[in-house]
Simulated assay, not measured.
Amino acid sequence: MDTHTNGPLVLVVEDEPLVRLDIALAMVDAGFAVIEVPDAEQALDLLESRQSIGLVFTDIELAGPLNGLDLARRIKQRWPHIPVLVTSGRTTLQDRPGDGFIAKPYSTQAVISRARVLAA
Protein backbone atom coordinates (compact mmCIF):
# COMPACT_ATOMS: atom_id res chain seq x y z
CA MET A 1 0.00 0.00 0.00
CA ASP A 2 1.33 3.42 -0.94
CA THR A 3 -1.35 5.85 0.12
CA HIS A 4 -0.93 9.59 -0.39
CA THR A 5 -2.49 12.24 1.84
CA ASN A 6 -1.37 15.63 3.04
CA GLY A 7 0.27 14.30 6.24
CA PRO A 8 3.85 13.17 6.83
CA LEU A 9 4.95 10.02 4.97
CA VAL A 10 5.23 7.07 7.36
CA LEU A 11 7.02 3.83 6.50
CA VAL A 12 5.35 0.93 8.36
CA VAL A 13 7.59 -2.15 8.69
CA GLU A 14 5.65 -5.18 9.97
CA ASP A 15 5.80 -8.80 8.76
CA GLU A 16 2.30 -9.73 9.98
CA PRO A 17 0.01 -8.62 7.10
CA LEU A 18 -3.14 -8.02 9.18
CA VAL A 19 -1.27 -6.08 11.88
CA ARG A 20 0.46 -4.02 9.17
CA LEU A 21 -2.82 -3.31 7.39
CA ASP A 22 -4.58 -2.34 10.62
CA ILE A 23 -2.01 0.25 11.71
CA ALA A 24 -1.56 1.52 8.15
CA LEU A 25 -5.31 2.14 7.75
CA ALA A 26 -5.48 3.83 11.16
CA MET A 27 -2.58 6.11 10.22
CA VAL A 28 -4.19 6.99 6.88
CA ASP A 29 -7.44 7.78 8.71
CA ALA A 30 -5.40 10.07 10.99
CA GLY A 31 -4.04 11.99 8.00
CA PHE A 32 -0.66 10.33 7.46
CA ALA A 33 0.58 9.11 4.10
CA VAL A 34 1.70 5.48 4.48
CA ILE A 35 3.98 3.01 2.72
CA GLU A 36 3.98 -0.56 4.04
CA VAL A 37 6.74 -3.15 3.76
CA PRO A 38 7.14 -6.58 5.41
CA ASP A 39 10.87 -6.50 6.22
CA ALA A 40 13.90 -4.35 7.03
CA GLU A 41 15.60 -4.94 3.68
CA GLN A 42 12.67 -3.48 1.73
CA ALA A 43 12.51 -0.61 4.23
CA LEU A 44 16.18 0.23 3.65
CA ASP A 45 15.68 0.08 -0.14
CA LEU A 46 12.79 2.53 0.14
CA LEU A 47 14.74 4.85 2.41
CA GLU A 48 17.54 4.91 -0.18
CA SER A 49 15.17 5.77 -3.01
CA ARG A 50 12.66 8.13 -1.35
CA GLN A 51 13.71 11.32 0.35
CA SER A 52 10.20 12.09 1.60
CA ILE A 53 9.87 9.51 4.41
CA GLY A 54 9.28 11.42 7.63
CA LEU A 55 8.87 8.58 10.15
CA VAL A 56 9.49 4.83 10.40
CA PHE A 57 7.25 2.61 12.55
CA THR A 58 8.77 -0.87 12.87
CA ASP A 59 8.17 -4.08 14.74
CA ILE A 60 11.27 -5.63 16.33
CA GLU A 61 10.52 -9.20 15.27
CA LEU A 62 10.75 -9.25 11.47
CA ALA A 63 11.36 -12.04 8.98
CA GLY A 64 14.73 -11.91 7.27
CA PRO A 65 18.31 -11.31 8.34
CA LEU A 66 17.65 -7.90 9.94
CA ASN A 67 15.23 -7.27 12.79
CA GLY A 68 13.59 -3.98 13.72
CA LEU A 69 16.40 -3.03 16.11
CA ASP A 70 18.96 -3.54 13.34
CA LEU A 71 16.79 -1.39 11.09
CA ALA A 72 16.46 1.36 13.70
CA ARG A 73 20.24 1.44 14.25
CA ARG A 74 20.93 1.67 10.51
CA ILE A 75 18.37 4.44 10.08
CA LYS A 76 19.88 6.44 12.97
CA GLN A 77 23.36 6.03 11.43
CA ARG A 78 22.42 6.84 7.83
CA TRP A 79 19.38 9.13 8.27
CA PRO A 80 19.59 10.57 11.80
CA HIS A 81 16.85 13.11 10.99
CA ILE A 82 14.22 10.37 10.46
CA PRO A 83 12.41 9.44 13.70
CA VAL A 84 11.99 5.72 14.37
CA LEU A 85 9.15 4.37 16.51
CA VAL A 86 9.68 0.74 17.57
CA THR A 87 7.11 -1.80 18.75
CA SER A 88 7.21 -5.35 20.12
CA GLY A 89 5.01 -7.84 21.87
CA ARG A 90 7.94 -9.83 23.25
CA THR A 91 10.60 -7.30 24.12
CA THR A 92 10.83 -4.36 26.45
CA LEU A 93 13.72 -2.21 25.43
CA GLN A 94 16.61 -1.31 27.64
CA ASP A 95 18.76 -0.31 24.66
CA ARG A 96 16.56 2.00 22.59
CA PRO A 97 18.07 2.77 19.20
CA GLY A 98 14.91 4.50 18.02
CA ASP A 99 13.03 7.57 19.19
CA GLY A 100 10.30 5.75 21.06
CA PHE A 101 8.93 2.35 22.04
CA ILE A 102 5.32 1.16 22.18
CA ALA A 103 4.56 -2.30 23.57
CA LYS A 104 2.18 -4.65 21.76
CA PRO A 105 -0.69 -5.01 21.95
CA TYR A 106 -0.94 -1.28 21.37
CA SER A 107 -3.87 0.98 20.81
CA THR A 108 -3.71 2.53 17.35
CA GLN A 109 -4.47 5.88 18.99
CA ALA A 110 -1.32 5.59 21.15
CA VAL A 111 0.77 4.93 18.02
CA ILE A 112 -0.84 7.83 16.15
CA SER A 113 -0.33 10.23 19.07
CA ARG A 114 3.35 9.31 19.35
CA ALA A 115 3.79 9.43 15.57
CA ARG A 116 2.32 12.96 15.46
CA VAL A 117 4.81 14.12 18.11
CA LEU A 118 7.79 12.51 16.35
CA ALA A 119 6.81 13.68 12.86
CA ALA A 120 6.24 17.29 13.94
Rank of each mutant, 00 (worst) to 15 (best):
S113V: 12
S52R: 09
L93S: 07
A72F: 05
T58H: 05
L44S: 03
D99V: 11
Q51E: 15
A119T: 10
P83Y: 00
P105D: 06
L47T: 07
E61R: 14
D15M: 00
Q42S: 15
N67R: 04
S49H: 11
W79Q: 13
G98E: 11
A63V: 10
K104S: 11
E14F: 00
P65G: 14
P65L: 08
G64T: 09
V13G: 03
R96F: 08
I82G: 04
E36Q: 14
S107V: 09
G68R: 02
S113P: 01
A110L: 10
I23P: 01
D39H: 01
T92K: 04
L69Y: 01
L46W: 04
T5N: 14
T91Y: 14
R116Q: 15
V117F: 10
D29I: 02
S107H: 14
L62Y: 02
E14S: 09
A119S: 15
A40R: 03
S107L: 11
S113K: 12
V19L: 13
H4G: 04
H4P: 06
G89C: 14
L66P: 03
V10M: 00
L85Q: 05
P80F: 07
L25Y: 10
H4I: 14
V84L: 06
V84N: 02
I53F: 06
A103K: 13
I112K: 07
A103G: 14
L85P: 00
E16A: 12
V13A: 11
T91F: 13
V86Q: 12
Q51T: 13
L9H: 02
G100E: 12
N6V: 09
S107T: 12
G31S: 06
K104I: 05
V10N: 01
P83H: 00
D45S: 05
L118D: 08
R116W: 06
R114A: 13
V111K: 01
G64S: 09
G100L: 11
M1T: 11
N6P: 02
R73V: 05
I53V: 15
L118Y: 07
A33S: 15
L46A: 00
E41H: 12
V86R: 01
Q94P: 10
V111G: 05
G54Y: 06
V84T: 08
A72N: 04
L44Y: 03
L25V: 11
M1L: 08
Q51I: 09
A24P: 07
V111T: 02
W79H: 15
I53W: 06
T91P: 01
G64D: 05
D95V: 13
V28H: 03
R50E: 07
L21T: 10
V37K: 00
L44C: 03
R116T: 15
S88M: 10
V12T: 12
D70A: 07
R50W: 09
V34G: 04
P83V: 10
V84S: 04
D39E: 14
F57H: 08
G7N: 06
E41P: 02
R78D: 15
